[in-house]
């Protein structure tokens, strides 16, 4: 893996329960070792662009995938997505919307901004666990990232 920090997943999630369930599902499928969790949109931006609390981080050190909720405190998910996809340094990092919103407008806007995938969190836990497994499998093992992403 090219990323020196070895970070694989950035989970942007403000709901502690959802965070716990997601991490629980990842753990069940042995995917928890390199997940970093941030709890609002502002922290997510600081992390990605290495500012504020994450000033010592290196911008080239990007996760393999960013899981992003839409409804977030401070800066909402769509804005975070817009900033990531609008910056040439971060544009190639895969972003997956992981949200409760089934709203057509959110879906359309996310794709317009260049999201790589849009997933509605299932209410049913079995389905939820299955989703987490498939997500990890696909983005961490099957998907081949752009060389640029690791540069």
């Amino acid at each position: 893996m090219a990323s020196s920090g070895g970070l694989e997943i950035l989970l942007v999630e403000d709901n502690a329960n959802d965070e716990m369930l997601t991490l629980h599902a990842f753990k069940k499928h042995n995917l928890t070792n390199r997940v970093h969790v941030v709890r609002d949109g502002a922290e997510a931006l600081e992390f990605v662009f290495c500012t504020g609390r994450y000033a010592e981080r290196h911008i080239g050190d990007l996760p393999k995938v960013i899981l992003l909720d839409i409804k977030l405190p401070l800066v909402d998910g769509l804005e975070v997505l817009r900033r990531i996809k609008g910056d040439p340094r971060t544009r190639t990092t895969p972003v997956v919307m992981l949200t409760s919103s089934r709203e057509e407008s959110d879906l359309v806007e996310s794709y317009r901004l260049g999201v790589n995938s849009y997933i509605v969190k299932p209410v049913d836990f079995e389905q939820f666990t299955e989703m987490a497994r498939a997500l990890g499998m696909y983005w961490l093992l099957l998907n081949k990232p752009s060389a640029n992403a690791a540069a």
């Binding site: 709901n15 329960n17 959802d18 369930l21 629980h24 839409i70 409804k71 949200t99 409760s100 919103s101 089934r102 709203e103 969190k121 299932p122 209410v123 049913d124 836990f125 079995e126 939820f128």
Partner: peptide, 21 residues
């Protein structure tokens, strides 16, 4: 309905998830 869709489903997911665990 957006609020309902987003906010009502999150606690449900917690209820379902944790009882399942």
């Amino acid at each position: 309905s957006y609020t309902v869709s987003h906010d009502l489903r999150a606690p449900l997911r917690a209820i379902n998830g944790f009882t399942a665990i």
